[in-house]
């Protein structure tokens, strides 16, 4: 099988890579492009570990092939960092409120929460629960994940209010 060249736009940067059609987006990101924050968890699309944002929406990168996503915008957790690797306020909230223990589910969880927060101004805790239903965590029991997301939303609402005044 002759590999083909594809250009992927990952975290705002164009990356050229030679892939076979059967190379999943997960494997290309993790093994070929050095994006270690996109990891294998189950290969079934069930656990949420491999979540990336595709044009802003969370998808399972283990269920997509790299050849499918040329010209699409892919964002991984590392893509949320600001200049000089400054933490995104959502990441800060996770740190402050204990939303991450072993950390393996964290990229998928934060990206999914980020996507929800971008689409919905003030999701309720129940809406957050529902949206995160496909992001499995075995360490935290989820409560501090919700706490962190709500804290981020609260802070953001405050900042927006201040900006309006």
């Amino acid at each position: 099988m002759t590999p083909q060249q594809v250009t992927l736009r990952v975290n705002g940067v164009l990356r050229d890579v030679l892939v076979a059609p059967s190379d999943t987006l997960l494997d290309v990101l993790h093994d070929r492009l050095g994006l270690k924050d996109v990891r294998y968890g189950c290969g079934e699309g069930v656990c949420g570990t491999c979540t990336v944002l595709l044009d802003g929406d969370p998808v399972s990168s283990c269920l997509m092939y790299a050849v499918q996503v040329e010209e699409r915008e892919i964002v991984t957790l590392l893509g949320l960092l600001g200049e000089d690797e400054a933490l995104h306020p959502l990441q800060e909230a996770f740190l402050r409120l204990g939303g991450s223990q072993c950390g393996f589910c964290t990229p998928g969880v934060i990206l999914t929460a980020y996507s929800l927060a971008e689409r919905t101004p003030r999701p309720s805790r129940d809406q957050i629960r529902y949206e995160l239903g496909g992001s499995l965590c075995r360490c935290t029991g989820y409560t501090k994940i919700f706490d962190a997301i709500e804290s981020y939303l609260e802070d953001r609402a405050c900042i927006e209010e201040q900006a309006l005044n």
Binding site: G48, M64, S135
Partner: peptide
């Protein structure tokens, strides 16, 4: 149906 990722694709 499924979860948010399944529903997106």
């Amino acid at each position: 149906v499924g979860n948010v990722r399944v529903r997106n694709r």
